[in-house]
Computed example of a mutant assay.
Amino acid sequence: MRRKGALILTLSGLLTVSALGATTASADDSPAPAEVAPEGWQVVDDALMNELLVRAGEARLSAEADEPEELPWGIQSVTNDLFVASEQSFREPNTGLLRARSEGINGSWELYDLYWNENETLSIRSTANEKFVAAELNRTGSEKGVLRARSEGVNGGWEQFILLYHEVTGRYAFQSVANGLVVSTEKNFTGNLQNALRARSDWINGSWEEFYLI
């Protein structure tokens, strides 16, 4: 597979980003996503991503809620160079937990379908169990906000993310609509939660919050 982030990097100077005008309707009264992404980060919407991919000769993301894009994606953590897997063998309540722990894309556990919602937020569905990734805000302590492929559909802000892109590095970040926090790879966690993905950072502070889309 080719790194789509690198392809987008070569085209970033040709396009400008449209502001994210719509806010999210969510049962948990979640905060509205940020309309301005400072420090070189841009908010990616359906139109921008599609134009970038078309110009680069890659697959087009689907704007239809019931139709996935043509090719599933791998998500690679910048901080440890490992791919994000959906842990299907973990027992509840961790079944489907997202962890950056695989050396490569070995199968459906490391692949995800990406969907654009009508409000220009992004939803992620694991190809392993065909469930949408949610930020688990009901958990407490260090597990609050962990990402898990466990939802049958997009029910609100828990399953919605703002996709951010850095035009210089070609890296991506995911901001949870549910709590307004950015997804981080938790390298300091131990055991089954080591390198778990969690919506917990106030902003993109370094490689822990940065990813490639492959």
Rank of each mutant, 00 (worst) to 15 (best):
E39H: 09
W41G: 06
W41T: 07
W41L: 06
V43I: 13
V44I: 15
V44K: 04
D45A: 06
A47G: 09
A47V: 13
L48E: 05
M49G: 03
N50I: 09
N50K: 14
E51C: 01
L52V: 13
V54R: 14
R55D: 01
R55V: 10
A56S: 14
A56V: 11
A56M: 08
G57A: 05
G57K: 04
E58A: 13
E58C: 07
E58W: 02
A59Q: 04
R60G: 01
L61C: 10
S62W: 01
S62Y: 02
A63G: 14
D66F: 02
E67T: 15
E67G: 00
E69P: 01
E69A: 14
E70L: 04
E70A: 15
L71V: 04
P72E: 00
W73Q: 13
G74E: 02
I75Q: 01
Q76Y: 03
Q76I: 05
Q76K: 15
S77N: 05
N80C: 11
N80S: 10
L82Q: 14
F83M: 06
F83C: 05
V84Q: 06
A85M: 09
S86Y: 02
Q88R: 11
Q88G: 15
S89W: 09
S89G: 06
S89E: 14
R91H: 10
E92T: 14
E92G: 12
P93R: 12
N94T: 06
N94K: 09
L97R: 13
L97K: 07
R101N: 15
R101S: 15
S102Y: 09
I105M: 10
N106T: 09
N106K: 08
G107R: 04
E110I: 02
L111R: 15
L111N: 08
D113R: 07
D113Y: 13
Y115F: 15
W116H: 07
N119E: 15
T121I: 01
T121E: 10
R125A: 06
R125G: 00
S126C: 07
T127G: 00
A128D: 10
A128E: 11
A128W: 01
A128C: 06
E130Y: 08
V133T: 12
E136T: 08
L137N: 13
N138V: 04
N138R: 11
N138M: 01
N138A: 09
